[in-house]
């Protein structure tokens, strides 16, 4: 008998604080698998954002610096410029990246900083208790859109991957999901490309993951997982938006 699936070494062997059925845990594992695959563990400097994912320094066995909310791409710029031969990645949620950090992500991307950005879009602010985010769907009830998000007052959800692809400075832009084995395999292939454009010194790699948030969606893990395909993917289409397939 040969082991055909095991825990990646770059993922610290501890239980996580993520809620049952939250895709953060799965995405963390895919990232760790890439760190192992490319042998990056001891030359990676991670930049943690503020949100559910702030504890990435407990889960990735790499050096990590904590950025203020929304500023990870700017912190990462300083890190990468200072350590050009290290692998530098940020891991950010939709409140962090698409709202307060919108200027930082757009400009780091357009400068073509040699970074890999992992963006987890679960359509809410998770850690703070489920408020509306820039990616909250029309009609989606959150604690700050209790009657459902209205386009007239809050505008439609923002499609970040498409914006990133529209910037001249980016090298790879993809969006994936981990709700089904098939989507997960495709997402991992894209994630590898987002790693490779930095490793090969080509430029800025961006990978958006759609993710569940069962607790703040007020759904079971199973129902939340279904929502990815039923509601999110139609509005946030999966695939490569820039860079080779």
């Amino acid at each position: 008998m040969k082991q055909v699936f095991k825990r990646p070494e770059s993922l610290v062997d501890v239980p996580t604080h993520f809620c049952p059925g939250c895709h953060h845990g799965t995405i963390h594992r895919l990232v760790a698998e890439c760190l192992d695959h490319y042998g990056l563990r001891d030359k990676t400097i991670g930049v943690a954002s503020v949100g559910c994912s702030v504890f990435m320094y407990d889960y990735f066995d790499v050096d990590v610096v904590e950025a203020p909310h929304g500023r990870a791409p700017a912190v990462a710029t300083g890190v990468k410029r200072s350590k050009p031969d290290h692998f530098v990645m940020t891991y950010q949620g939709d409140g962090d990246l698409a709202s307060i950090g919108a200027a930082e992500i757009i400009h780091a991307a357009n400068r073509g900083e040699k970074l890999t950005v992992i963006f987890v879009n679960n359509t809410v602010y998770g850690m703070t208790g489920g408020q509306m985010a820039p990616t909250t769907m029309i009609g989606q009830e959150t604690t700050t859109s209790p009657y459902g998000r209205e386009e007239e007052s809050a505008g439609p959800p923002i499609r970040i991957a498409e914006i990133m692809a529209g910037l001249g400075g980016t090298s790879f832009v993809g969006r994936g999901a981990v709700d089904t084995p098939k989507n997960l395999m495709k997402a991992k292939k894209m994630l590898k490309r987002a790693f490779e454009v930095q490793i090969n010194n080509e430029g800025f790699g961006f990978m958006e993951f759609l993710s569940t948030c069962p607790t703040n969606w007020r759904m079971t893990a199973e129902k939340a997982n279904e929502r990815i395909a039923d509601e999110l993917i139609p509005y946030f289409p999966l695939g490569v938006f820039k860079g080779d397939k």
Partner: peptide, 16 residues
């Protein structure tokens, strides 16, 4: 390995 891939908490190891 589908179950192991999908699991958010790396609960499952698979052997073949």
């Amino acid at each position: 390995t589908f179950c192991a891939e999908i699991c958010p908490d790396v609960v499952i190891s698979v052997f073949k």
